[in-house]
Amino acid sequence: MTPPPPLGRSRNKEGPAFEAALDDHELATVRDALARGRWADARQLLARTGDDWDRRGHRLVVLAEGPTSVAWAREWQLAEPDSPDAAALLACATVARAVHGKDTPDAARALCLAAAAMAPRDPTPWLGILILARRTGTDGERVRAFDQVRARHRDHHHAHHLMAACLAEHQDGDRDDPLHEVYDFASWAAEQAPADSPLAVLPVVAHAERYRVLARAGLEPADPARSGHWGTRRARQVMKAAFDWWLEWDVDDGTAHPRRKVDLNFLAHAKLHEGRPAEAAALLTRIGPHATHAPWSYPDRDPRKAFRAARRAALGAA
């Protein structure tokens, strides 16, 4: 799963319209150009992105989602058959089609493997395989794809979000089990990540993903406000622990680093639900005009403390 995208204007009553490019204005411009066949703009964007693997993955996934992206990626590849960027875009675009049932998973996987062979250091083709495996593969295929991404970029943001989503979808029992593997995974990943990594908030993401699964199964209210989680003291403690650990402002201009904007959104919306609109407004102002929408709540629990306490209790009972 990618970080929650910005809240846009609703297209219908079903829900809000989301801007997949987030606050990457350059990406949004190039995506529109690619839709008109100007694949050279995509080539230049990816060349400038270099080996910033998190940004490269995000940009390729967004560019790949266009309905004509496969056609223009093929044209680019015909013009430059040795371009790993063209191969990666074609692979990701075919994955997007396969996820929506418009192409075969085997074809998408083959293109991802071909792109991976052209750029062995790039985790993005393996990210494509992970996206594909989430919808069409087995647990083993998802784990293997995640391991391949992590072998190339240990702290890959998108891949960790996807694995949290995959693990959260393992529906065991009829309640939110503090021993559920998604919490163990999120705590492990946060502990392994550098101090300034967005993965520090993965335990919070795990709660959001697990709540999504439980709500879809009818085990939690579809409206998180009815669940009571936002109003509890423990929910506030979960948020505070995550953000005290990770949040800091850039000293250059006093604004949030672009990669932190999405995660700052969670804190802003938590303050809204706590009835502290002035503090929320201040945070959203610092984030900028593309503040995002937090679609889910979080269970009433500190994930790391709850997991450890439950494990100690289980060991004691044994």
Rank of each mutant, 00 (worst) to 15 (best):
T292V: 14
R48T: 01
R144K: 15
F146C: 00
W296P: 08
R308V: 09
H157F: 15
D252W: 06
A164S: 09
G37D: 05
L267T: 04
Q77T: 08
Q237H: 10
L127C: 11
L214V: 00
P178S: 06
A35W: 10
R276D: 13
W245I: 06
R236W: 12
A291T: 13
L315C: 14
R121E: 12
A200G: 14
V205F: 05
D54N: 15
K102C: 11
L34M: 09
V61Q: 12
A278C: 06
K261W: 05
D263Q: 13
P224T: 01
K261F: 07
P299T: 00
A42R: 12
D85L: 15
A222N: 14
S69H: 03
T292L: 12
G57V: 02
P295G: 13
K271I: 04
L162Q: 13
Q237W: 13
A133Y: 00
H269T: 02
G8D: 02
T68I: 06
D32Q: 11
P84Q: 04
P84V: 03
L60N: 03
N12Y: 07
A278K: 14
V204T: 08
K261T: 02
G8P: 03
A317S: 15
F307D: 04
D51P: 07
A117V: 04
A314P: 02
L214M: 07
W53F: 12
T68A: 13
V201A: 06
P81Y: 12
L78W: 13
E191I: 01
M118Q: 13
L199I: 01
S69T: 03
L34G: 00
L267I: 05
A281Y: 10
R31G: 01
E75T: 14
W245A: 14
S10C: 09
D253P: 08
R31H: 09
A281V: 08
V213F: 07
P221G: 04
L199H: 00
L63G: 01
R226G: 03
E14P: 02
P6Q: 04
V238Q: 08
E181Y: 05
L284P: 01
H180Q: 02
P4H: 14
D85W: 09
L34Y: 05
D85M: 11
R134H: 15
F146N: 03
H158T: 12
R144Q: 14
E274I: 05
T232L: 11
T136Q: 12
R59M: 03
D139K: 11
L127V: 11
A318M: 11
F146S: 00
R233D: 10
L78A: 15
T94Y: 05
S187R: 05
P84H: 03
D52G: 07
A20T: 00
V70W: 02
E191V: 06
P295M: 09
G173F: 12
M239V: 14
P258M: 12
A64G: 15
K271F: 15
A21K: 08
A107Y: 02
V238K: 05
L283W: 09
R286E: 07
P6D: 00
L60Y: 04
L34C: 06
C92D: 00
E220D: 09
A93G: 04
A306F: 04
A117N: 09
P105W: 02
R134Y: 10
Q148F: 09
R154K: 08
E80C: 11
H273F: 03
R55N: 06
A282N: 02
R11N: 08
P303E: 04
L199M: 03
A159C: 07
